[in-house]
Lab assay of single mutants.
Amino acid sequence: KRRTSFTPQALEILNAHFEKNTHPSGQEMTEIAEKLNYDREVVRVWFCNKRQALK
């Protein structure tokens, strides 16, 4: 499976959402994914990886 390359704009939006809520609901992740035109699973993994990076 290929790595997803996030655009700077997408990272800005993802980081803004992460600052508000580090554990978004499934519905929220779906909405973010649709807004950014990414697969929901990609957004889920991004949040998971971001949380791990802060440990």
Rank of each mutant, 00 (worst) to 15 (best):
L11A: 05
E41C: 09
W46D: 03
Q9A: 12
K35N: 05
S5F: 11
R40Q: 09
R51S: 07
E31H: 14
V45D: 15
Y38P: 00
K20T: 11
Y38Q: 13
A16E: 13
E19P: 00
A16N: 13
Y38N: 03
Q9K: 11
R44K: 06
D39I: 02
T22K: 10
V45E: 07
P8L: 11
L54T: 06
E41I: 03
N37V: 03
R51H: 04
L36M: 07
A33G: 05
R40E: 13
R40Y: 10
I32A: 02
I13P: 00
R44D: 07
R51Y: 09
A10D: 12
S5E: 15
A33Q: 03
T4H: 12
N21C: 12
K50G: 03
K55R: 13
L11M: 09
G26A: 14
G26V: 15
F47R: 00
Y38G: 06
T4R: 06
E31I: 02
A10G: 10
Y38V: 14
P24G: 00
P24M: 04
P8G: 08
R3Q: 10
V42K: 14
T30A: 11
V43A: 02
A53F: 05
F47I: 01
S5G: 14
R40W: 12
N15C: 10
Q52I: 14
V42G: 11
K35L: 12
K50H: 03
T22H: 15
E12H: 15
I13L: 12
V43Q: 00
E19R: 11
Q9I: 11
V43F: 02
E19N: 10
N49K: 13
V45P: 02
V42M: 14
E31A: 09
L11F: 03
A53C: 06
A33M: 03
E12R: 09
K1N: 14
L54M: 09
P24V: 04
C48F: 03
L14N: 00
S25M: 04
R3H: 05
P24S: 02
L14A: 00
K1Y: 03
T22D: 11
V43E: 01
R3V: 13
P8C: 12
N21A: 06
D39S: 11
I32S: 00
R51E: 04
A53W: 10
V42Q: 09
P8E: 10
E19S: 15
P24F: 00
Q27W: 08
Q52V: 07
L14S: 00
A53R: 07
F18Y: 15
E28Y: 09
T30S: 06
T30K: 07
Q9S: 06
Q52A: 12
K20Y: 06
L14W: 00
N49H: 07
T7E: 14
Y38C: 13
I32F: 02
N21P: 00
T7Q: 08
